[in-house]
């Protein structure tokens, strides 16, 4: 808490810089969305959504640090564990379109 509130440069605290970093990751998510939408094959989309999930975990962790709310890490953990389920579900579905489920 005190570390996040510490002033780094020009009156901006560490929390401000972390928020800017989280905003940067959110902008990157828009770039990853391009691959999820355009991706010529389903494998591209699976990978894109997997990277998006990891990106969301990072955003949530940075937000938890920047806003001084450690409970945000719980949500990040849920995503870290369940994003894997989404990836394997879609990737096994793409084999013969659900024929092997």
């Amino acid at each position: 808490m005190s570390l996040v509130d510490a002033s780094l440069a020009a009156g901006y605290t560490l929390g401000d810089f972390l928020l800017v970093a989280a905003a940067g990751f959110a902008v990157l998510a828009v770039g990853m969305l391009y691959r999820a939408v355009v991706g010529p094959t389903m494998q591209d989309r699976v990978l894109a959504v997997n990277v998006l999930g990891t990106n969301t975990v990072v955003i949530l962790a940075i937000l938890g640090a920047a806003l001084g709310e450690p409970t945000f890490l719980d949500i990040a953990l849920v995503y870290a564990l369940l994003n894997f389920l989404m990836a394997i579900a879609i990737s096994k579905f793409t084999v013969e379109r659900g024929g092997v489920l």
Partner: peptide, 17 residues
């Protein structure tokens, strides 16, 4: 439809954040 499902998953990621 499969692409729509995948993008919908991405939508929920953004909403959770």
């Amino acid at each position: 439809v499969l692409a729509a499902v995948i993008i919908f998953g991405a939508y929920s990621l953004g909403m959770a954040a």
